[in-house]
Amino acid sequence: MAAGGYLRRLTRRLTEDPEQRDVEELSDEVVNTGAQRAIDCQRGQEVTMVGTLRSVETNAKGCAGGVRAEFFDGTDTVALVWLGQRRIPGIDSGRKLRVHGRLGKLDNGTKAIYNPHYEIQQ
């Protein structure tokens, strides 16, 4: 019986959408770490979130010569913006982070945290 369960899980894992699987894993991690979900957070609120970096840009447009990263926690995307930085060691696409800061918005309405405190997660 255990082998049938294993086969079912393996088949599901191989056939499901990888992005959906990532969303489920990130959502579970948010719950397990006690972090806040980005979708529930409002502008002006001090937040702590856990997620992964989907992309990282240096000298990004609208960043005044800074680093901008797209952070995703399984529920919503938040722009992380470090002003005045050319590069930040450890801030790379695919990296898992725990971030803390005050939530704001970019000119286009995207949620953002400027100069967030961060911890690289394993």
Rank of each mutant, 00 (worst) to 15 (best):
M1D: 14
M1E: 13
A2L: 14
A2H: 07
A3G: 03
G4P: 02
L7V: 10
R9Y: 12
R12Y: 13
R12K: 14
R13T: 14
T15G: 09
D17R: 03
E19G: 00
V23I: 13
E24I: 11
E25Y: 09
L26D: 05
S27N: 11
D28F: 07
D28H: 14
E29L: 15
E29W: 10
E29M: 14
V31E: 11
T33H: 06
G34Y: 08
Q36C: 04
D40N: 13
C41R: 03
Q42C: 14
Q42W: 12
R43F: 10
R43S: 09
G44E: 08
G44Y: 03
E46G: 06
T48I: 09
T48D: 01
M49T: 02
G51W: 07
T52C: 07
T52Q: 05
L53P: 05
S55H: 06
V56I: 05
V56G: 02
E57L: 14
E57W: 09
T58M: 12
C63V: 13
G65P: 01
G65S: 03
G66I: 08
V67H: 00
V67F: 02
A69L: 06
E70W: 06
F71K: 04
G74C: 07
T75P: 00
A79F: 06
A79I: 13
A79C: 07
L80P: 01
L80M: 06
L83Y: 06
L83M: 09
L83G: 00
R86N: 15
R87W: 10
I88Y: 02
G90V: 06
D92H: 07
D92P: 00
S93H: 02
S93C: 02
G94I: 04
R95G: 02
K96L: 09
K96N: 08
R98T: 15
H100W: 08
G101Q: 05
R102Q: 13
R102M: 11
L103V: 11
G104W: 08
G104A: 07
K105H: 12
L106S: 08
D107C: 05
T110L: 11
T110H: 05
Y114A: 11
N115F: 01
P116V: 05
H117K: 08
Y118F: 15
Y118S: 02
E119N: 03
I120K: 11
I120L: 15
I120N: 09
Q121W: 11
Q121H: 10
Q121G: 04
Q121E: 15
Q121T: 13
Q122A: 14
Q122V: 13
